[in-house]
Design a protein around this nucleic acid. Sequence first.
DNA 1: ATCGTTTATCGTCGGATACCGATATATCTC
DNA 2: GAGATATATCGGTATCCGACGATAAACGAT
Lengths: 113, 113
Amino acid sequence: MLDTPPETADMRMAAMAKALSHPARLRILRLLARTPGCIGGDIVEAVGLAQSTVSEHLRILKDAGVIEGQIDPPRVCYSLCPGALRPLSDLIAALDVIQPETGCCIVPSHPEG
Amino acid sequence: MLDTPPETADMRMAAMAKALSHPARLRILRLLARTPGCIGGDIVEAVGLAQSTVSEHLRILKDAGVIEGQIDPPRVCYSLCPGALRPLSDLIAALDVIQPETGCCIVPSHPEG
DNA sequence: ATCGTTTATCGTCGGATACCGATATATCTC
DNA sequence: GAGATATATCGGTATCCGACGATAAACGAT
């Protein structure tokens, strides 16, 4: 039912950014980075939301490829996918590089025909 | 009406990420980075959406502090705010650093009791 | 003062998101 | 099979988002 829908690179990038666009999810990511191993439902306690809500956030992160879950029944052990966010930081770096220090407009005058 | 609502650092970060969470906005950012100077309504053509829609995207980016507009009546000259996204890439870097190469779970066993 | 140009705002609509409680699912233990 | 545990999914509701057309606002030119 999903014959490779027109998913552009920007769409993937946008989806990745969207995964980071909620405080609870940032919390989760930091928690996962912090933890020496990986955790299960402790995340629920850490973020202070309902279990179902946290599960949804985890799904979003998983769908975005930012985290992955390793099953250890009946738990699931979540962890970061190391290089997953690299493209995003690369984009940010690229944007900054090209725009060095020029305050703003270089051509404030309008070159009319 | 907005007496500094409990805006945490994570909320700011999330808002920044949300600014990047749409293909059209990524398009706009890349366009601004690309352009030697900065552009006005050419953005509208570039993204292929209605003028009002693009204006809204620009507002979102501006609110997030990612871009800024310099007025050159009747146009507005948009440009990137150079270091604005740094905190986001820093976060990403931090996440990756701490998670070195450990495939996943370090403690798959559940310390019951 | 009026017109033309460019951008911002408004009203609206459909669809997505966030949150919750309740329930289903999966697995180990007994 | 029954029970316990941990996670995923479902149903519902309130809110937000993205898109558009229409309209307002700001300013230079005539």
